[in-house]
Simulated scan of single mutants.
Amino acid sequence: MRVLVLGGIRSGKSAYAESEIATAAGEQQPVRYVATGALRTDDADWSARVAAHQLRRPTTWTTVETADVAGGLRGEPTVPTLVDDVGGWLVSALDRHEAWTGDTGALDADVDDLVDAVGAFRSPLALVSPEVGLTVVPATESGRLFTDALGTLNQRLARACDRVVLVVAGQPVTVKEPA
């Protein structure tokens, strides 16, 4: 089962995804937690957020900090996996390709690779991603570029996943069920 969990900041999407993958994997089963945002020691708030996430995880889970999500999914396709979050992955890809000025075509191969790896993954998989369509259009070019790219990526991931859930105020709303 592949599930895409969408929601706004502090909506409860990560906690919901953690619960979903724990249930799908079985309580005693190891889970790989792929963190796309590296720990930054120069930002106390970020460090506190990361620590809160870490405290919720069972001790049987392993954490991998990487921007190479597709490679990780292909490298260990039988390990139940949670990716948190796709927005962080996209920021890394935009940085890597220096695409913040509008050339998002450079991202196409990375996005295709990620979507293909998700579609091919056969163990339980939960992907966490910000939902970008519920707010004002960003005032900056880079903000619009990010929201446009993430909106398109979320749509592609939703097609590759069996389930899609939107978390609002901690409440899951099913958007897509398995056919």
Rank of each mutant, 00 (worst) to 15 (best):
V3P: 01
V5A: 11
L6G: 04
L6R: 05
G7D: 04
G12Q: 10
G12N: 09
S14W: 03
A15M: 08
A17R: 05
E18K: 01
S19Q: 14
E20V: 15
A22Q: 15
A25W: 03
G26S: 07
E27A: 15
E27W: 14
E27C: 08
V31N: 08
V34N: 14
G37T: 04
A38N: 12
L39T: 12
L39K: 08
D42T: 06
D43V: 02
D43E: 14
D43I: 04
D43G: 03
D45K: 11
W46T: 09
V50F: 03
A51I: 10
H53F: 02
T60C: 11
W61Y: 02
W61H: 02
T62I: 08
V64T: 09
V69E: 12
G71D: 09
G72Y: 10
G72V: 12
P77F: 00
T78K: 06
P80Q: 01
L82P: 05
V83T: 08
D84W: 06
D85G: 09
V86Q: 14
W89C: 11
W89K: 03
V91W: 02
D95Y: 14
D95I: 13
R96A: 15
E98G: 15
T101K: 15
G102T: 00
D103G: 10
T104S: 14
T104L: 11
A106G: 07
V111Y: 06
D112T: 15
D113R: 10
V115T: 09
A117F: 07
F121L: 01
L127F: 12
V128G: 11
V128H: 08
S129Y: 05
P130M: 07
V132R: 03
L134R: 05
T135D: 13
P138C: 03
A139N: 13
T140L: 00
E141W: 08
S142Y: 13
L145D: 01
G151I: 07
G151A: 04
L153C: 08
N154L: 03
R156L: 10
R156V: 14
R159A: 15
R159T: 12
C161K: 06
D162W: 05
D162V: 00
V167E: 09
V168A: 12
G170F: 04
P172A: 09
V175D: 07
K176H: 07
E177N: 12
P178F: 03
P178T: 13
P178W: 09
